[in-house]
Design a binder for these strands. Sequence first.
DNA 1: AATTTTTGTTAACACTGTTAACAAAAGTAA
DNA 2: TTACTTTTGTTAACAGTGTTAACAAAAATT
Lengths: 201, 201
Amino acid sequence: MGIAERKIRQKEEFKASILEAAWQQVISDGWQSLSIRKIADAIEYSIPVIYNHFENKEAILLEFTKEGFQKLADTLQEVKDQYEVPAQQLEAMAHAYWDFAFDHNEYYQLMFGLGIPACDRVKQIIEMKTATGIMISTIKEAIAQSNHPETDYFLKYHTYLSILHGLVSIQMIQKEGKPDASKKMILQDAISGFIISITSK
Amino acid sequence: MGIAERKIRQKEEFKASILEAAWQQVISDGWQSLSIRKIADAIEYSIPVIYNHFENKEAILLEFTKEGFQKLADTLQEVKDQYEVPAQQLEAMAHAYWDFAFDHNEYYQLMFGLGIPACDRVKQIIEMKTATGIMISTIKEAIAQSNHPETDYFLKYHTYLSILHGLVSIQMIQKEGKPDASKKMILQDAISGFIISITSK
DNA sequence: AATTTTTGTTAACACTGTTAACAAAAGTAA
DNA sequence: TTACTTTTGTTAACAGTGTTAACAAAAATT
């Protein structure tokens, strides 16, 4: 009986079409002006059908948040694989992180900014752990090869991520769109300082 | 004729009472659930009176943002004055920044986070320039006394602020309330690395 | 005392997210 | 095919939001 399978397939397609319409909204007018009504309007269905597929609006945004972390994780892994030395990996990943933030502005804002972090549920985003896992492992490797292998890797990871997020978000507040290449010097400056603090004393 | 003066005084008081009611709302339920209606209810007036004193809701939040930057500037200046050596000043200011962020959580979220930074108007907050001015001048002094007086101070300032904001906001996303003292080691770690990058090669 | 200005209110508009009540279509069983 | 059940979708409403136009009341001015 392929009938049941067709049904769940259609359900998946419907869900995807909702997300697609929602994403269209997000990239054209920002996630703040995303509304259930506009989504319903776009897919030419009534409002409550959306609630058959998503518990609420937050669930839709959560979907994008997950997507964002998955994309970030993929990007980081890809970049990491292009190098051998942990220090080089950390530097390359920092630049990739920066590029991701500005190339996928909407994702980044959903993942971090936005003020509706739904702090409780943040830990339940396993895609986030994927991304952080890649960073942590690289930090660990860098520390292992350094002159101070007893260094607290979690502290260093936290520092690494904070520097990256800080640079990105300060830049985002001041300017919209991707900043010019000269602004990347700030990233280079901060991240090389960080790497030195690990590799050598 | 003290009559005109009384009027503007009353107007000021009214404005202040609006802000007070609003702030009460903010600290009890967060700025996201602040509403004009609740304010009107609290001050026992009808809704439109608020619009006689504030252009819109954003103007009210902007007021708090300014207040926040002013408080931050005051705090930084006060801490800075307790030290002589720029490097020590930078370190102390970093800790003061951290404490401010968590002691005045609501202010900090309005000042940076929140996703409604109203990017256009951000530059018009002169209180922000006051705060950044204090940091920049200290960075300049630190660079002047270093072995590399030709270092780009604006780049270093940007790095300094990014590290601080990054540390704070990452911490805020993961936990609510003030983090335990051990978490401050991360700040210590990052900021001492930064200071070394200025003072010595 | 009449008139203008300020101040405040009521009521509405145009939006939000969300849900209860109900109709229509689709699938199942006799 | 007919009767029944389940899924799917719609209409209409509730409870909110920011904002504003039209109007009444109070205060100040002439």
